[in-house]
Design a binder for these strands. Structure first.
Length: 188
DNA sequence: ACGAGGATGCTCT
DNA sequence: GAGCATCCTCGTC
């Protein structure tokens, strides 16, 4: 039951869990096609107390997956064009999320290039990352512990050094340093 | 390298 | 009707 460990790992506050996810991998398998990245940039969104979080004003139709168990995938359409994805963390019913913002391609790079329609800038940015991995609303509210979009532990043991900065592209709670970026990242 | 502007549609008030 | 957890292209330096 290796996923029991991952589930436990995700149960803390998002500002604590988010940097620990740096170095973890996200793998997708769609119609037998495998793609995988190393996660290198994330942001924490903390429940209703966080004015920038989709859960700030309580449960809605859109944010329902945020209230699921840790490991739940929350996908939504942003600016009418791009899908963005979060891994839900913390305890069930507590709408904590970690936005996946960037990484380095590890497997299925040709498939990522095909999905992106270009050969560079494959996985740097939340919309690009989601597109490169083929994640859509079809995967919303699935579990990253057992579904087609899977969170996998780091390949190497050890602490991943990181930098924290304010979050990007928001207009509320801009002072919180809840964007976490792996140093020595090879983001594309 | 960097900044401006446009694309585009859903969600919640 | 306002406001987006963005990305791309094209201008200028």
């Amino acid at each position: 039951m290796p996923n029991a460990n991952t589930r436990e790992f995700l149960q803390g506050h998002p500002a604590d869990v988010a940097p620990l996810l740096l170095g973890w991998r996200l793998a997708t398998q769609m119609d037998g096609v495998l793609t995988e990245v190393v996660i290198e940039e994330v942001e924490a969104y903390a429940s209703a107390a966080d004015a920038a979080s989709h859960s700030h004003r309580g449960p809605t139709m859109r944010n329902k997956p945020m209230y699921g168990p840790p490991g739940t995938l929350y996908v939504y359409l942003n600016y009418g064009m791009h899908y963005l994805m979060n891994v839900i963390v913390g305890l069930e019913e507590t709408p904590h999320a970690v936005l996946l913002r960037g990484g380095t391609p590890l497997k299925g790079i040709e498939e990522m290039q095909r999905r992106r329609g270009r050969s560079d800038s494959l996985t740097s940015g939340p919309g690009r990352l989601t597109q490169a991995l083929g994640v859509t609303l079809a995967h919303n509210d699935t579990s990253t512990l057992s579904g087609p979009v899977r969170l996998l532990p780091p390949l190497a043991e050890g602490f991943v050094p990181y930098l924290s900065t304010p979050r990007i592209g928001i207009s509320k709670a801009t002072e919180l340093p809840w964007r976490f970026l792996a140093l020595e990242s090879g983001q594309d």
